[in-house]
Design a protein around this nucleic acid. Structure first.
Lengths: 217, 217
DNA sequence: TACAAAATCCCCCAAAATGGGTGATTGATT
DNA sequence: AATCAATCACCCATTTTGGGGGATTTTGTA
């Protein structure tokens, strides 16, 4: 029989809890297509050995002593954009989920998964998918809704949206078919309502309250 | 035995395909806790009868003659923010999914679902969930990643990010601990690389290519 | 119908920001 | 040696911005 020449997928694990860390290692070592390169208890150590480990997959805990998993994900993706970082997690904190996805996390693995789930998740990630529980996906999706309660009128929101897109008063006026002075008038009201006195501050307030769509579509 | 006083959930369906429309109706009418108020083949008609129908749930097709389901969702959510709009869909177009979620869609129902799936999805939505297939959830999540291939350097990206947040050159300079002239210099390079000559255009280009994080975090 | 809120427009003014030039220096990386 | 990235400087004209004062019309609702 011919030996199959498969390239094993290189994996490292960054997790401070020794039982979870060793648990994952034990599981992954039973799978022949995976090779666990190294285990680390913090991000700093893992970063130092990145160029030796050259991982295809990083299993990363989110809460770690020192640099946390989100910052770690950012660093790793900066050095090796093709490396897939999967976050190991127990409970989901909406804000952390959101930020880790922005940092470039490729998916989520639940800490108490069984072997087949873990393998399935990793394979899915390697195939270009974004493994995660439905509850996490929902969390992300819901971050798109739930704006509401804006003190601004519809028109004012339109104007502020223009500001958030970097347009000048004149440009906004053109786009909304009104005079530049009208825009100025709206801006004054917006500043008064939001208690700010500059574009940047207005954007910050409106953005954090989701009164404008962050992403330009 | 005492009659249970349950408030039936009021549902309307907006779908131009008559067999799908009637199919959904047939399914939903077998469930006692639902009441199908009306069926419409376009958004315009549905909007006209909103204040009579007062739906708790709207099942909305995304491709419709006249106003499409996304614009329809926006209108309905504007009038009745608590009304839950579920998109009925066959195949998923990443852009449409994204836009309908931004419009306030509460979830997705696959057109060829069976009864129990449909009921489950609607109940989930009513319970505050965001029902959708894993593939759609992934699509949304992936919209957070896949930036890459930016012609801008790291520093230039930082500067552009500042611009996208509405900061002035001076403010960006302060935040990055460099001179205002340095920022100006970076801006000039950014404009040259992106072939633009204004803040608004630079933001637009960078945003559509996801070279900056749209949402301020 | 009468009132309030929203949307529209106008003028003045001074300070700040912007965009386009044309440079220069330093430190990496190749 | 050559290139690129990042840093800083000075000139200039134009535009933008923010704050002040108003005014008018439309709209929704009490």
């Amino acid at each position: 029989m011919i030996e199959r020449l498969i390239m094993k997928k290189r994996i490292i694990i960054v997790e401070d809890n020794i039982s979870i860390r060793e648990g994952f290692r034990a599981v992954l070592e039973t799978i022949e297509k995976y090779e666990v390169m190294n285990l680390y208890s913090n991000v700093e150590e893992a970063l130092e050995h990145l160029d030796q480990d050259l991982p295809d997959i990083v299993l990363m805990d989110i809460e770690l002593p020192g640099m946390d998993g989100i910052a770690g994900t950012t660093r790793i993706k900066k050095q090796y954009p093709d490396c897939i970082v999967l976050i190991i997690t127990v409970l989901e904190d909406s804000e952390k989920v959101f930020r880790s996805l922005c940092a470039g996390a490729g998916g989520y693995i639940v800490k108490n998964s069984n072997i087949s789930e873990i393998v399935q998740n990793i394979d899915e990630a390697l195939a270009g998918g974004a493994p995660m529980s439905l509850s996490i996906a929902r969390m992300v999706v819901q971050s798109f809704q739930q704006q509401q309660n804006s003190p601004l009128t519809e028109r004012e929101t339109e104007v502020l949206q223009g500001i958030a897109e970097g347009k000048s008063y004149s440009k906004i006026a053109l786009d909304l078919y009104v005079s530049k002075e009208t825009i100025r008038s709206h801006i004054k009201n917006i500043y008064r309502k939001l208690e700010v006195s500059s574009k940047a501050d207005a954007i910050k307030v409106a953005n954090s309250n989701k009164w404008v769509t962050g992403r330009a579509l």
